[in-house]
Amino acid sequence: MFDYLQYVRQENFPHIWCAGCGDGIVLKALIRTMDKLGLSQDETVMVSGIGCSSRTPGYVDINTLHTTHGRAIAFATGVKIANPDLNVIVVTGDGDATAIGGNHFIHAARRNIDLTVLLYNNYIYGMTGGQCSPTTPRGANASTAQHGNLEPAFNISGLAIAAGASFVARGDAYHVKKLETLIGKALQKKGFSLVEVVSPCPTAFGRRNKMASPVKMMEQLRDTVVSVEKWEKMTGEERKGRFRTGILRDIEKPEFTAEYAKLIEKMRPEE
């Protein structure tokens, strides 16, 4: 059995997440992947913003930086540029990264700076009590959309691809083995990499949307997730109500800190 103790800050448990929350599942997947890749705990920095997902760093025994709402990627950009030898992981949520922090998200993707962003998408502001987020589906209920959400939702992975990210994948908290593979590829990618993790929030989202049971939310993930390979063969009608997981983009392009290193080399006075 895998021993998590080397990687966690035991003194900070029990964690703050509600029963049925997917965030702990993602945390375990991340830890197993870090172990598999042999990531040095001393040389890895985890940066987060504000929200349920952003409490993840408190539980991981590495260098951790819990910042202000929306700004995790901005802080992480400073860490990575100042010391490119560090592995920099950002843990954020749908509200943190695509509402208040949307500007940093798209510009880090455009810049293609070598950050690995784990974005837990639970369709809601969980920590503040269930207000609608940029990914709350149209028509769904939230504490600030009690008559049904009027706004269309962001496609987060699509946003990252359009902004220029070199690696974009979507996974979910039910298909954990696949999630680990995706996180592993993201961590190994030299460039801006996003793993959007669809993670259930029965307390703040499910309860208002006829899915109060954590099991029911998990079953829904099981039944609506389709692999990207299968998705390609499906008709528009078959895709309805489902979403795809897997690697959505994986390309090679110049990475910011590597380009900066070349600039410094070019500027170096000749001997």
Binding site: V47, L65, T67, T68, G70, R71, A74, F75, A76, T77, G78, V79, K80, I81, A82, N83, L86, N103, H104, I106, H107
Partner: peptide
């Protein structure tokens, strides 16, 4: 990309 990002980035850099 904006003023808040600049402030965040210098804090991140300072921590290294």
């Amino acid at each position: 990309e904006d003023e808040m990002a600049a402030m965040g980035a210098i804090i991140g850099a300072a921590l290294t």
